[in-house]
Structure formats: C-alpha cells, structure tokens
Design a protein around this nucleic acid. Structure first.
Lengths: 337, 337
DNA sequence: ATGAAAGCGCTAACAA
DNA sequence: TTGTTAGCGCTTTCAT
C-alpha cells in the first residue's frame, strides 16, 4: 500500500483524481474544466489547468470513452497500402476525421474477405464511432456485424451494388465502359488487356467487365489478354505487356487494369522503341501523378480518391439517413491514345 | 426502466453480462471462456460460446483495456501519406503489429512539428502500448511526453542523432555522402541539386548536407541548385530541373532530394531529348518501384522502408533495453549515371 | 471450476 | 459553481 507521500512518485500515469486533489477541487469539476464543458469559475479553471500541466497529466480516453457514450475512433479498412490509391483515400479521410476530433484506426485486408471479416470484428471491439470500408463486397457475416453495430458505415470507391449505409465512390463498371468506348472511338480495333489478379480485386474485375461490354457494343472483343496472378505493379504491367506481345497477336491498343500496370506497359514500349500511340496505344485507370507527368501523359480515367475519403469521413461523422454519393470520374485524353 | 423481457430488444450492443446470463454462468466465468484464460469445464465453454454467438456478442475492448493494464493500440506518426515511403513503413509495421494482436492508430503530421506534438498528445490519451514516430527531431514537449509515457517509443528512418528509446533506420547523412561520392567517382564535376522544402523534411536536409560534404572532399561544390518550396513530387522534380537548366549553368549531373523528384527530372530529360547519362546524369533516393522499373533504371539509394516498419514494430511489441538498429541502405547503380 | 465483489479512470446526472 | 454518487463493461483477485 502506498501512502499519500509516495503517490507522487508512482510509476503509473497521473489520473484525474491526482489533478483534482492537487487543484483542491472535486473530480467532476476538474473534468469539466479539462473538457471546457459545464461551468466553473475562472479561479478554479486556472488552478486545475496549472495542476494538470505541472503533473504532466494526460487524459485517459479509454476511461472517458467507457464512461460517456461513443468513442472518437473511426475504423478504416483498406485492401492494400502498396498502391498509392488507398493512402490517397486514407489521406482524405484523415484530414476530415482529425478536423472533427476523430482518430483513424486502420486495418489492411490484403484483398482477402476472410481477413477483412476478422479485422472488422476486431475493429468493432474498439466501439468505433464509425467505419469506412473499401468496396461493397463482403462476407455475409461482415455485413451482419456492420449492420448490427449500429454505427455509421461508409463503403468506398464503388457504386456498383447495394450498400449498407453510406456509399461514396464511382462506378467502376462505367469507368471500364468509358475506357472501352474511348479506344473504339479513336479507331482502335485490335485491343488487348493486361490485368492483375481479378479474383481478389473486384473493382478491377468490374472495370474489365464494363470495358468488354463497350467493345461488344462495337462488335468487338478483347483480342488477347494477359493476367498476372499477383497484385498490380509497374513491373507486372511491364512483364504483362511483354508476354502479351510475345504471343504474336497483332494489337493496336492495350487496356490495363490500372495506372501502375499501364505505366509498366508504357516503360516497356519506351525500352523496346515501340511508338506510342502509333504502334501501340495504352490506356490506364486512376490518373496517378506518375501517369500524368510522364513525357507522354497517359490516357486514363482520373478517380476522385482523396474526395472519396473526405466525403466518406464527413458522412461518417454526421447523423442522417443512408446516403449514396457518386463522385464520378474523368476521362483524361493523354498522349498515349 | 426496462424489464427482463425487453432487454433482449435493447438497441445497445450485447455485453458480457448478457452472455453470462444467457449461458447461465457468472460474468467472470464467461470472461475466462471468451479469452481462453483460466479454467472452466468443456460444458460451460460450449454454452458460453454458443450464447455469445447467438447474441452476436462483440467484446468491448475499451472496457477490457480499462479493466486490465495495457491497451493493444500502437500509435504510428508519419509526416505524410502522399509519398509512398510512409505507407511502406506503415505496411511493414502493420504486418508485425497485427500478427502480435495490436491495432495501429495512425496520425499524419504533414511535416509539422507543432502538429506532431498535438497529435502525439492525442494519441497518448488512448494509452497505447507503444508509439512509432518518423524521425528523431521533435519539439521539447513532444520528447517529454514520449519519455513520460513510460511506453516503448520507436523513432524511425533516421539514425543521425539521439533517440528516446528505440531507433530503427539508416543514416541519411551517409546516404547523401554515398550519393555524392558515387557521382564524383563516375567523373561528374558540374553537379547540380534539385530539392523540395528542406526546412520541413529534415531527413532530406541531412542527405543534402552529406552530399555536399562528399563534393567538398573532392574539392567540388554544388554548381547550381533549385529548391521547390513545396513537398516532393514528380511534377516538382520536373519543374525543378527545367528551371535549373533554364539558368544556363553547365551541368553534367543532378542530385535530387528523392526518387519522386528524380523521376520528374528523368521525365523532363526524356521529353526534351536530353541524353541520359550522356548529357545529364540523374541520381535519386529511395529506390521506388517506378525508379527501378524505368526504361533506364534510376541510379539511387535503396532504403529498407518496409523492414524499418517491421523492425520498429517488433521492438515496440517487446520488452528490453533501448535499442538502435541501423538497417543501412544500398547504392543502386542504375543506368542514369 | 466458478461466482462475488472490487475496481480501472472517467463522465454524467443530481444535489447542494 | 461545485461535490457526491453512480455507473460504463470488463478483468482480476479471492473465496468457495
């Protein structure tokens, strides 16, 4: 048992009780002052604040959250950190969240719905005020947990399907379709596709489906395709195009599953001296900086990633009915088509 | 007042009390079963588990953390999410953290020490088990808070200076020096520099300092330099080199503050038909994928970003004395020097 | 193997 | 304006 005198040297952190005692006020008064809530005299305010400062008091939000109603945590679930797309969304969300006094807690699923399920279960145990998740496709149990949590849930980056509560994004299917129509309208007829693992990246699969439907509308089909069984990367795009071309199919354009892949293809053409778009046109998806700053700006679809994060966060922090925001996308006619 | 019957329809989440009651056992027994701690019969185990499942029970970690000692949260403080470098570190940290049952809580400082201070203060209020912070330079108060928190603190990505507890990274100063020596040894003599806002990015400033000292060793100095007063980006590198060249200084090589900047410079040369490295050599920093996959792989310094995150996380999750791990870096002799 | 009871540090009525 | 008093939902002795 420690006596009063020894308490000052405790190894543990200072508590509100310590501050109240040092300031010579009650706990609740100290609490009110520290949160600027309720009323108190200027005199007590100063003594509490100075006591807190001199004791190096750091409030314990764990206790605060338990005692009050909701936490100020927001769970953010994304499939990857390797592709700058998700840090972009996170960045947008972070800005708004921090501005509203929330803390993001992130989880990375690695495009695995099973992992997503257990990560979300784990996040939910922190009783977050809200949850932001990439995509609309989840396991049944994930959906059930999210619905039963009775918190705001935002599903991001896709509008092709039903959402739980808040949906903020754009149609990947339409993006693919727009890409296909663009290539067709430019007169390309021998069109290939280079993609990455679509069984996991469902949004890329939707784009490809939309793309194919656009070609079909024009009586065309994908002349040749190469799927790299890995996540997207510049290298995968480079290798993918190399393999596609090795097969000897005559192509005048290639649609890539995203800009990373497309930049890889672009680099391959530069390295091999393949004229772009004369010998080969290239089309990507996302409108990354690297794609837009290339010597020949890549033709691609610019996606509002940061805005998706911002809007999702804004809605998650607010009350209201379920919402659906389609932020759209923008076709960028670069120099590669 | 709600009666027993109505309790089942409460809007709030299920609690351990509900589970215990449904299973016909005491709270502590239910708690033991759910955490697989302590002893209980197979029979109780099953009834508790099935009660939890049928009630859709999600444990409340907030309460659990308050009741027990430490939380399973780890704060991660990085300057930016725009540069893939930090998501890379985060990725490494996340993998290890999740494997050890921890949840990362991230904060982004935007290279602002004041913001860093308030973000860290806020993170600390969640009573994290540990803290991972980019860099060694903080405000005095930040240092004090971190020290007084009595938790493990890992400072990442830099070893040029004193750390608080755990330091995992490499010497930016040495990296700059190595870069300088490399250019000198290749015979370049008219060497320029294109950088971004160094007053905020202290590690980039250290690299530049090391770089200059290497040139001085060879009796050289930076022939011309261009600092873009913004954060690093491909576009900034492109514009920076363009401006540097407009000034008419005769240069045979340019050192960039990082790979994003260097890729921008590389693109500028491609666009202008400037032969690399014949007319102009380019050197970067980080060894990003885009730099390594370019038609002419960029000469650069490869940094162990993911490993920094992994090692930092590993140490933060462990007990032990202060530690210092220098993971080093690797000079990549690409095709641009 | 199990339950009762005492907190963890704070917030939120409710009195005073 | 201020203090007292209950909890928030869980973990953890300590009996039983």
């Amino acid at each position: 048992m420690v006596d009063e005198a020894a308490e000052g040297m405790r190894t543990g952190a200072m508590t509100l009780t310590d501050v109240a005692r040092a300031a010579g006020v009650g706990e609740s008064t100290a609490s009110r002052v520290l949160r600027g809530h309720g009323s108190f005299s200027e005199k007590t305010r100063e003594s509490v604040l100075s006591a807190a400062r001199s004791l190096g008091y750091v409030p314990n939000r764990i206790a605060g959250t338990l005692a009050s109603t909701g936490s100020k945590l927001v769970g953010i679930v994304i499939p990857s950190l390797s592709n700058i797309v998700f840090p972009d969304v996170l960045r947008g969300a972070n800005t708004v969240l921090v501005g509203a006094g929330f803390q993001p807690v992130v989880a990375v699923t690695d495009y695995d719905q099973g992992r997503e399920e257990s990560l979300i279960e784990s996040l939910l145990s922190w009783r977050p005020a809200g949850m932001m998740v990439a995509g609309l496709e989840h396991t049944e149990r994930t959906g059930a947990m999210l619905r039963q949590a009775r918190i705001r849930v935002a599903e991001l980056l896709d509008t092709d399907g039903e959402g739980i509560d808040i949906v903020v994004g754009f149609s990947n299917r339409e993006a693919g379709r727009t890409s296909g129509r663009h290539l067709v309208s430019r007169g390309y007829r021998q069109i290939g596709y280079v993609g990455h693992d679509l069984s996991r990246d469902l949004r890329a699969a939707k784009r490809f489906a939309g793309f194919r439907s656009a070609l079909e509308e024009a009586g065309l089909k994908v002349a040749a395709q190469e799927i790299i069984p890995a996540s997207s990367s510049i290298e995968a795009g480079r290798d993918g195009l190399a393999r596609l071309l090795e097969r000897g199919t005559n192509l005048d354009a290639v649609y890539f599953s995203n800009d990373d892949m497309a930049i890889g293809g672009y680099f391959h053409c530069l390295a091999r001296g393949i004229a772009i778009p004369g010998q080969m046109a290239i089309f990507g998806f996302n409108g990354l900086d690297v794609a837009r700053s290339a010597p020949q700006p890549l033709s691609t679809i610019l996606t509002p990633r940061v805005a998706v994060g911002e809007n999702g966060a804004r809605l998650v922090c607010s009350e209201g009915p379920p919402a659906r925001i389609d932020l759209g996308f923008e076709l960028i006619e670069g120099a590669t088509t």
